[in-house]
Amino acid sequence: MAVTPLPAISTVPDLTTKDQASILDLLFEPSPDLHTLALPLLHEQKFESYNHLIASVGVQLTSLADSSSASDTKWLESILSAHPRLGAKKVDSAQSAAEQAQLKGSDDEAEALKKLNEEYEAKYPGLIYVVFVNGRSRQVIMEDMRKRIAEGDLEGERRAAIKAMCEIAADRASKLT
């Protein structure tokens, strides 16, 4: 499945809202809540690069993480949960499907990953484990999951998920430009 390349960064503020939302979907994951958060920024600001755009969205996400408002927390968790679970059989975005293909492993590993996802989500209600795989093996990723579950730091997890989302988006941008 061919993915449309990203338009020149200089054109982003002049694109239609639909086209800007498509850019966010390609870089991050389809999320109406991310559209609500970031589309005004894309309309109003010119960016030097896609990495600058991604960093600006990261600042917005971090502002939600820093907020004491329950509605901001729910908003952030909705955006972070737009990423598919690691090892999920059904993945909607072409980018995530390709990224997850790197994590192929045995049936036993798939079952262990499923259980770790469940354990993670029980430990951090409202979150899905998000990590920039970056060529690491399933075993390495599962060890990272275990470590993050054991830490029990919900605020730290939100920040780790934001960082991972931005790293994933930067990697996608480099491949789509």
Rank of each mutant, 00 (worst) to 15 (best):
D108E: 15
D66E: 12
A164W: 15
K123F: 00
A122S: 06
G87F: 03
G135R: 15
M165Q: 13
Y129P: 03
L76D: 11
R148S: 02
I54L: 12
L176R: 13
V91L: 02
N117I: 03
N51I: 00
A110N: 14
V57N: 04
D108V: 06
E119A: 12
K18F: 08
I168K: 09
P30I: 04
S93V: 05
S49M: 06
T73K: 15
E157R: 00
E118K: 10
R158Q: 07
H43A: 05
S93I: 08
V140K: 15
L64W: 08
I168Q: 11
S174R: 14
N134D: 15
R136G: 04
S63T: 12
K74E: 07
S71C: 03
L34C: 06
G152S: 10
Y120S: 01
R148E: 11
T4S: 10
L116I: 01
K74P: 00
V140D: 14
A122E: 08
I141E: 07
A65T: 08
P32Y: 04
Q139D: 14
W75F: 14
A173H: 09
A173F: 11
S137T: 15
I162L: 07
S31M: 13
V130F: 14
G87E: 11
L15C: 05
M142T: 05
V12S: 04
E48I: 03
L34S: 09
L80I: 14
K123W: 00
S71K: 11
D19L: 07
E77T: 04
R159S: 04
